[in-house]
Computed example of a mutant assay.
Amino acid sequence: MPTTSRSRIVLATAAGLASLTATAYILPQAIGAAAHAEPSAELLAGLRVLLSNDDSMQAAKASHADGLGLYEMRKALCAAGADVVVMAPWQVQSGKGTAVTNGGALTLARRTQLPAGYENDCTGAPSGSPVYGVCLSDDACGAGTPSATPADTVKFALRSGLAAKVGWADGPDVVVTGINSGPNVSAQVNDSGTVGAAVAAIDDGVPAIAFSSSSGDSTNSYFPVANYRANAEFGARLLAGMRERSLFTGKFAVKVDYPDVSTGRRAKAPLWTDIGHGKVVWHDYAAHRGGGDTFDIVPGVCADRPGDSCTETVRRADSTALLSGHVAVAPVTADRTYGATVDDGKNLRKLKHYVEQDAPRP
């Protein structure tokens, strides 16, 4: 979700989203199917995964908003047999969308001491499963060094980084981005660096899946490990099923948003959705207290602004599904062309069928 360190900011919350006026989500008949058993770990054996995000690889904040979800996803994928290499932004780059850097130099900083509890998650992986942060510098990355964008990290990894650092000259089998701290639904999808990184992958013809998790409090300032972990475990099983059915495609990215389960409720079955048109976070700009030509960036919850175009009108919107407790799955095309049909819809139809009838249940 978009953030800025110099702004007075109130981010969208699950409670705030729920107060949006939305059309009812019609459940497919197949959603009532019984839960599916977890796939064998062997289903991801040998799968080469590039893992990135927009929250950085720091995972140092008590809020868990700066990359902890990435380590939960890494843990789940490695436990399922995948070979995972992380190349992620050096600093938090939330809200960067598909932005890229057009000049200068990129430097990799390998993390040798991983966050507590995640040190041995990928022991024995053929690549060594390194974790890299990518900064904008021709020198070592430091505390204040600017960061590469999410799209930078994926483009760099696919075109140079993976070949140079782990010998993957023909690239990964799939790019996974996230787990983002906060949902990426409706109009804010265009702002999402997590989704932007996935779009960068399909720009190069590499399959990509972007994962995001809901927050666990009314201010969207705390992101429980429970949400990341449930999302990651579901994500590993989802990838296993997609791989088994040959559903990986570079024609479009797949966006997966996971509801809040930190209070003990169980996520509902995944739904195939469209990206909504309603606003979720409303970006506003107020005169700075010092006056002059300075303005504060003051995003807020859309529902707090009566009269703004916050009403969701898309019938099968991702935000509506998520707020009703379902895992929301939606395709994202790279060209953003209205009404575009990718591959005559063949791959979309196959994936939609999988999500609605055969995908794992949380």
Rank of each mutant, 00 (worst) to 15 (best):
T333E: 08
D335V: 07
P299T: 07
V254M: 11
K350E: 13
G133I: 03
V154R: 03
D293Q: 09
K346A: 14
L136Q: 15
L239K: 01
T311N: 05
G97K: 01
P115K: 07
A41W: 02
N53S: 15
A328Y: 02
N180L: 10
E312A: 03
T112Q: 10
A198T: 10
G46C: 00
G171Q: 02
S40R: 07
K350N: 11
G117I: 06
K350C: 05
G205S: 09
S215H: 08
D191H: 13
A200V: 04
C135E: 05
A198V: 12
V131Y: 07
V86R: 01
P299R: 02
A22P: 00
G171K: 01
Y71I: 02
T112P: 00
D204H: 15
I9W: 13
D54R: 09
R243Q: 10
T337M: 12
G69D: 03
T4A: 14
K96D: 11
G205I: 09
L47K: 01
C302S: 05
A317V: 01
P2Y: 06
A60N: 10
A37Y: 04
Y132Q: 04
A328C: 06
K61R: 15
A62C: 02
Q113T: 15
G278M: 06
A37L: 12
D308M: 10
Q188D: 15
H277A: 15
V298H: 06
G193S: 03
R316Y: 07
S160L: 06
V199Y: 06
N347K: 07
F211N: 05
W90V: 05
A330Q: 02
D344E: 13
H353F: 11
D343H: 05
R265T: 11
D284Q: 10
Y338S: 08
A45V: 01
G339D: 04
S319Y: 04
L247M: 00
A340R: 07
S324T: 14
G104A: 03
D138G: 11
P2S: 13
S218D: 14
D173H: 12
A24V: 09
V134D: 05
D138M: 03
W90R: 02
A33N: 13
D83C: 11
G133A: 03
K346I: 14
G345Y: 05
A60Q: 14
D54C: 11
A148V: 10
N227D: 04
P2M: 03
A34H: 08
A140G: 06
G278P: 01
I275S: 00
N120W: 09
N220H: 02
T149C: 07
R74D: 06
T333V: 10
D83G: 07
D191K: 08
G235H: 03
H64F: 12
A253K: 09
E244N: 10
V332C: 03
R110A: 11
D170R: 12
S319V: 15
A169N: 14
Q58T: 09
Y25K: 11
V329W: 02
G16L: 04
K279P: 00
T23V: 15
L108H: 09
A22S: 14
D121T: 15
R8E: 11
N53T: 15
L348I: 14
A105E: 12
S319T: 07
M87T: 04
E72N: 06
A287T: 12
Y285I: 01
A143T: 13
D204V: 03
D173A: 03
I202W: 04
R289H: 13
R245P: 01
L323G: 07
K75T: 12
T219L: 14
A287E: 14
V301W: 00
V261R: 01
K96R: 14
E312R: 04
G128W: 08
P207K: 09
